[in-house]
Design a protein around this nucleic acid. Structure first.
Length: 213
DNA sequence: AACCATTCCGCACCACATTG
DNA sequence: CAATGTGGTGCGGAATGGTT
């Protein structure tokens, strides 16, 4: 349904999901790719970019792989939904897994897999009712796709458009900034079900964010 | 009819191994 | 060494069937 010219490069980091070095090397390659794609698309099409983060509750190490494959399936459902198809013209999706390394924390050792998604939407996304998807709707779409019995933490924000297309780095900066902000939000966010599901900040998170773009 | 879930299949990509 | 083969994974379209 989406035009091929707008299809964003897609990748999932490292088979050994928790290996920071593999992720790091890989992400450098992908970052370079994405920068070029975003620039090219901006030259040809009048589009905006959104930054979406999809999360689930923390999981223990044993069920991590199940959770992740459930997330992939859920993602496939999500992109099939009407709302998504009409509003989104392309995307880049990255899986990130962080681990709570704070020995003081109740949720010490639990894993926190989540998707970071760069969405390409029409420039009229915010104006047209048939395009715009509110944060609540993103949340319920993700909840439905994941078949969750709780409200997942979902965050969406726009990447500031820069007129100046020559500067590749502007998007890099904006994207980094968006990631940092969203991770800051994740760090202080609680899931309503249990307080042991609080996501605590840790060094690994910051490093991963730093290296994704 | 519209929307969504599910399954199937071919394809692309990648890591790794084998071959010439 | 490069070229080629192979298995695993996810994508994406088609088809099917269920639900409203």
């Amino acid at each position: 349904h989406t035009e091929e010219a707008l299809k964003l490069y897609q990748a999932w980091f490292c088979k050994v999901r928790l290996c920071p070095m593999c992720n790091w090397r890989r992400s450098l390659k992908i970052a370079y790719h994405n920068k070029r794609i975003v620039e090219t698309v901006n030259e040809r099409e009048n589009v905006r970019w959104l930054f979406l983060t999809l999360t689930v509750k923390n999981t223990d190490a044993e069920s991590l792989s199940e959770t992740i494959s459930a997330m992939f399936k859920a993602w496939n459902r999500l992109v099939g939904y009407k709302a998504f198809k009409t509003s989104v013209r392309g995307y880049f999706r990255a899986l990130e897994v962080t681990k709570n390394r704070d020995p003081e924390s109740e949720s010490f050792g639990t894993c926190h897999p989540h998707f970071h998604v760069l969405l390409c939407v029409p420039s009229s996304y915010f104006k047209k009712k048939e395009y715009y998807i509110k944060q609540d709707e993103w949340t319920s779409l993700w909840q439905k796709a994941m078949k969750l019995d709780y409200k997942p933490i979902v965050h969406i924000q726009k990447v500031k458009p820069k007129e100046n297309l020559n500067e590749l780095e502007t998007y890099e900066k904006d994207f980094k900034k968006a990631m940092k902000e969203q991770n800051a939000i994740l760090e202080v966010s609680k899931y309503p079900v249990k307080d042991t599901d609080v996501i605590k900040g840790n060094k690994v998170t910051d490093e991963n964010v730093e290296t994704v773009l």
